[in-house]
Amino acid sequence: MTADSLSAPYTVEFPFERTVGPKIGTFLGGLRDGQLYGVRTARGVLCAPLEFEPETGAETGELVPVANTGTVTSWTWVRSRPGDPVPHDFAWALIAIDGTIGALFHAVDAGGDSGRMATGMRVRARWRAERVGQLSDIECFEVAS
């Protein structure tokens, strides 16, 4: 009976803006400047930063520049869709930035070949030429071996 049914495109869209705290704000400012930052905590330098430690509620400390390379700790392969950061199939991954604790969630461009993906693989940030202070200032991470 689907032939009897009308259908139409339907888009739900909300142009939200959210405020960020001082630590994440500085982290985003670093992205705009092409430099990753982490935040000092009792456990080590946390990247991506948080305003407060989840377990103790303690305020996190000063921001420090960190490397733009890291190690993939987990990943999932996806098909590229309109609006995605990579124009061909790619991986969403958790990336442990070198010298930090925590994980940064971002896209990894493996040239469309999921066979190049592995946990433990080395990746490097690919920066956009025009940056505005958003996580998308890193276009994606690319294989760095």
Partner: peptide
């Protein structure tokens, strides 16, 4: 340190 960003688009 970089000048902090205060808002981010979250569409």
């Amino acid at each position: 340190l970089p000048e902090p960003v205060t808002t981010m688009p979250n569409p």
